[in-house]
Amino acid sequence: MRGGARHGGVQVLVVGGVLLGLAALSFGLSRLHLGAWAVPVALGIALVKAALIAGFYMHLTERPGGPRLVVGTAGVFVVILVGLVLAEASARIWPTLPPGPFPVTRLPGKDVEGPPRVAPPWRQPP
């Protein structure tokens, strides 16, 4: 519909080729150890792939209006959720988590059936 028939199999294959190429690129870049840039680059490539899939495979290019509004809104709210949580957590001056290490073999619940049902007993800080 809405000129959907124009999107032939060729287009699907071209987009598919680009997707596979981008996946290979993402894998190759991960071997280079980009340090601080690794996550943004990987997520950027993933975003491009997602946009290609949404646009061509999920017919977003054929559907202006409602669906694009929905996708955009969902994106904004994901950013709000992740962004505000990170903004709050990264501004904590003192850590809210107790320091480790927690020996993995000693974790409560491993010896009994199922996880512990009660809070661990209070220990006096040294």
Binding site: L81, E88, A89, L97, P115, P120
Partner: peptide, 26 residues
Amino acid sequence: ERVVGAGLFDPGRGGDPLLYQHLFWF
């Protein structure tokens, strides 16, 4: 958390109890 003791909200396992409040109030 109750079934397998996931630890995501449990400081005793390195988790952050504030995460629950963030997500819940979102």
